[in-house]
Computed example of a mutant assay.
Amino acid sequence: MSRQSFKVCFCFKRIFKIKGAEPPDDIKRLFEQYSENGTMTLEQLHTFLLNFQEEKATKEDAQAIFNSLKHLNIFQRNGLHLEAFFRYLFGDLNPPIPSKVHHDMEAPLTHYFLYTGHRSYLTGNQLSSYCSVDPIIKALRKGVRVIELDLWPNATKDNVDVCHGGTLTTPVELIKCLRAIKDHAFSASEFPVVITFEDHLTST
């Protein structure tokens, strides 16, 4: 909580306290889990880093966090209280998870959420845009793992096109889409690519 002072009627000064953002309830519960009597000690912070954050942190790392907060008036000599802990969580010493795989990737495919494309072949809107391999390649280069293709017979019924049926979208040949997937499937990720086909080739 910071303080600011203002002159009132040009004759005396009043000091107002400005209340900062209140830690949300889940942060409060987390702090209570790893603290005692409203204070998180160096050892408790180290335990938090190991068990909750799953970091390969040393006590020196925990001490560095303590040292970074000592200049703030929210720091207590015996450890961190809630506001200091909250400040640490959303500060530079606790950056976002790096953009790399950090989970166990040996489980069956059904155990994971997949980065999924929808009508991956469209260059624009779903009613009148062109169908192309370019959006498919772009998606794969971003790490998309599920590509959706809508299959329709071409105008002469002797080949397969990919398009959004019943609209004015301009089709692209299926073989071109499959070649693009083959060439770029693993340009951004080593993990499997799933191709979903919406089959409109046979009438029911």
Results as ranks from 00 to 15, higher is better:
41 T>Q: 02
124 G>F: 09
20 G>V: 00
64 A>R: 12
134 D>H: 00
32 E>W: 04
22 E>G: 01
40 M>T: 04
175 I>K: 13
190 E>P: 10
63 Q>F: 05
197 F>Q: 03
124 G>Q: 04
119 R>V: 01
115 Y>S: 03
71 H>Y: 08
77 R>A: 14
83 E>I: 14
32 E>V: 03
43 E>L: 07
77 R>H: 11
15 I>Y: 10
181 I>N: 15
65 I>V: 08
186 F>E: 01
70 K>S: 09
193 V>M: 05
184 H>Y: 14
77 R>M: 13
66 F>P: 06
36 E>L: 09
17 K>L: 08
35 S>L: 04
135 P>I: 00
36 E>H: 07
158 D>W: 01
11 C>D: 10
58 T>L: 10
123 T>F: 05
142 K>R: 08
35 S>Q: 09
94 N>T: 06
177 C>L: 13
165 G>H: 01
201 L>M: 11
15 I>A: 05
108 P>K: 05
81 H>F: 14
191 F>Y: 14
115 Y>R: 06
147 I>D: 04
54 E>L: 14
46 H>W: 12
201 L>F: 07
87 R>E: 07
131 C>Q: 01
180 A>H: 11
66 F>A: 02
135 P>R: 01
132 S>R: 00
147 I>E: 09
61 D>V: 02
52 F>T: 07
159 N>E: 15
111 H>N: 12
185 A>K: 13
95 P>F: 08
155 A>D: 15
145 R>G: 06
137 I>E: 06
120 S>V: 01
89 L>V: 07
159 N>R: 00
67 N>V: 10
186 F>L: 02
127 L>M: 09
143 G>A: 01
79 G>F: 12
122 L>N: 03
186 F>Y: 15
9 C>T: 15
199 D>G: 03
109 L>C: 11
57 A>H: 10
167 T>H: 01
125 N>C: 06
83 E>L: 15
35 S>I: 02
7 K>L: 15
168 L>M: 12
202 T>G: 03
46 H>F: 04
5 S>L: 08
118 H>W: 03
173 E>Y: 12
16 F>W: 10
104 D>G: 08
99 S>G: 04
26 D>N: 11
93 L>V: 03
3 R>E: 14
